[in-house]
Amino acid sequence: MDMITPEPRPAWIAGRPEQGASTLTVRHPYDGSEVATVAVPGPEQVERAVAAAVSVAKEFRRSPAHTRANALEHVSRRLAERAEEIAEVITAENGKPLKWAAAEVNRAVSVFRIAAEEARRFSGDLQRLDSDPSGEGRLAITRRIPRGPVLGIAPFNFPLNLVAHKVAPSLAVGAPIIIKPAPRTPLSALILGEILAETDLPEGAFSVLPLGNEETAALVADPRLPVVSFTGSGPVGWSLADAAPRKHVVLELGGNAAAVVLRDWPDPEGAAQRIATFGNYQAGQSCIAVQRVIVEREVADELLPALLEAVQAQRTGDPYDTTVDVGPVVDEAAAERI
């Protein structure tokens, strides 16, 4: 599949496409071929994106729920309509097998649909106060107000859905968001920017900025972005929290997922198949991939050969082949580290 375009894919600055001060090249992890070039915004463009998010924050948080819900529903529909195209882009930039890329798009469709539903429900709480005599006849109303613009830093392993996990809730509650996609996999986030630009969201409600580490660190430190949402490795996540002690920092870090097989489980071969699949389906590059298996001794002798057979049956190769189960890791550096 030829993903190359004549000029760099634009970044999204306050909801508008712009070429950048420089470019980065996205390569297909399977064979190293060039997939596309992407615009990298310069300092002036980054400043405009932040300033726009700050300037629209009060207006956006006061916007009617139906406006935000309609925008999110539009994104959900358009992701579904472009599902095949977007799945191919995910495979091109990330290397995951096409069948898993398609599953990721479907998950993102659901994320935006659910966020649209929550936009209509998001309000507050009614609390009775007559637990004390002085509170008889009184009620307390708690309202929920967005903290302000969000900086979302996304990883490479789910380049669409983990961006969706940050964008959809932020827009649902009326918080502008600046997304910094992983530099190895920015294309899915940029397509999401295209779709968001089709909505009636106000200018400044979103930006998609493919940036390097130094520029990202400056955004983490910027006091105008009071919320930082990061998904990625533990060391990087905790360093971000340390760098922004007065901000609300939301971290989704690495896992140590265990599968437990007990002697009363009726289908040990089925358990072996699921463990083999979900220990390898993302080439192991997932915080919820199976990393250890705990087995009761009584069934260990039965499970082990079934698990070995199931792992050996996992097909590797070109991720565009729909029969392939396990694609490449994201780049050569990751392979060397492993």
Results as ranks from 00 to 15, higher is better:
E118H: 08
A119Y: 05
R121K: 05
S123N: 05
S123W: 12
G124W: 05
D125K: 01
D125M: 00
R128K: 07
R128N: 08
L129F: 02
D130R: 04
S131V: 03
D132M: 05
D132R: 02
D132I: 07
P133F: 04
G137R: 12
A140L: 10
A140C: 00
R143C: 02
R143S: 02
R144Q: 03
P146M: 05
P146R: 10
P146G: 13
G148M: 12
G148P: 12
P149C: 06
V150N: 13
V150G: 10
I153Q: 01
P155Y: 12
P159S: 08
N161L: 08
V163W: 06
A168W: 06
S170W: 02
A172I: 01
A172C: 03
G174C: 00
A175W: 00
I178Q: 04
I179P: 06
P181Y: 06
P181D: 05
P183E: 13
T185L: 05
L187H: 10
A189M: 03
A189D: 05
A189V: 01
L190A: 06
L192G: 09
L192P: 03
E194C: 06
A197M: 11
T199D: 09
T199A: 05
D200P: 00
D200T: 07
G204H: 08
A205T: 03
A205I: 03
S207M: 09
V208C: 09
E214S: 15
E214W: 07
T216Q: 11
T216A: 14
A217N: 15
A217E: 14
A217S: 14
A217W: 13
L219F: 06
L219I: 07
V220W: 12
A221W: 07
D222W: 04
P223F: 01
P226E: 14
P226W: 10
V228F: 01
S229I: 00
F230V: 06
T231I: 09
G232C: 09
G232A: 03
S233I: 15
P235I: 15
P235L: 10
V236R: 08
G237M: 13
S239D: 12
A241V: 02
D242L: 03
D242N: 06
D242Q: 13
A243K: 09
A243G: 06
P245R: 15
